[in-house]
Amino acid sequence: MSNVLTISPSPHVHTDDSVRKIMYRVVLAMLPALAWSVFVFGLDALRVTLIAVAACMAFEYLIQRFVMKVTPSVNDGSALVTGILLAFNVPADLPWWILVLGAFVAVAVAKLSFGGLGSNIFNPALVGRVFLLISFPVQMTTWPVTKQAAVDATTAATPLGLIKEGILNGKPLNELMGTLPSTSDMLLGNIGGSLGEVSALMLLLGGLYMLWKKVITWHTPVAILGSMFVFGGIFWFVDPEAYLTPVFHLLAGGAMLGAIFMATDMVTSPMTGKGQLIYGVGIGVITMCIRLFGSYPEGISFAILIMNGFTPLINAYVKPKRFGGQK
């Protein structure tokens, strides 16, 4: 006992989990989807991801170091996650400068201006994505074709984009159905779309890993996908001529990506299981409303951001079940 003893209040043992481990597990969970995107979009996908990650980490470091004048916490892994998620949300051939701008909005505006990790109200990657979507609608909705698809086309539309555009042009649904990819293509990810959203299967794989490692709980994804299924199912059941099947809605667009990786962001989702169910159902219903009645083909980003805003309210009113509380 050469040194003086340490005194601290109990408990004196600590779980070996840490913020960094959680973040790296999220990164690990995103790897299958990333690998798939490289497979279908080629090295462009890797380029976009690397630029987004590098930009997010650089902005985080520079702003914390020189503007906020605090010790940079860039090694906690949260900027890495934000970068990958941002990349997952953009087309693989997005110009680098648009990506860097998106990273700036995500890290500087959505995260650090609120006080950094843990204090932000909205999911940083989604704020970055929505900012880009509104500012650069053309670049953000022009998707490159997958390598496996026809070689004569240079751009491909997402399944949801096809439908929305068709309906706006007054085409009947059954005519449009023929242009849609098959369910198995959508499950695998042989469709047009942003980097991370194409393969529902790979995203589910990552989700299962995170569930196993207890990074996320089942509440949010199940509530989102379940409510989308039910909501879409009701419309399909009432009028199958005018509406698509609920399974199509689950597999198309960013539903999986949003439900598994974006909405489950710890910082911006409610604390209790019950709260997460309310939050998830809110996201599912808003998403379907935008998809079915809005002018955008896809609405999960908006839905998540809207429900992020409700999270403090949900936290204030949905309390865990107290031990010995009167029923």
């Binding site: 913020v19 959680i22 916490s73 906690d76 949260s78 950094g116 990790l117 843990g118 204090s119 710890m266 910082v267 911006t268 989702s269 409610p270 604390m271 209790t272 309390k319 865990p320 079940k321 107290r322 031990f323 010995g324 509380g325």
Partner: peptide, 18 residues
């Protein structure tokens, strides 16, 4: 470090507190 609102403390609390 900063609280990341992972809600593990809420899940772990045997008295159902936050």
């Amino acid at each position: 470090m900063a609280c990341i609102r992972c809600s593990r403390c809420v899940t772990a609390c045997p008295m159902g507190l936050e």
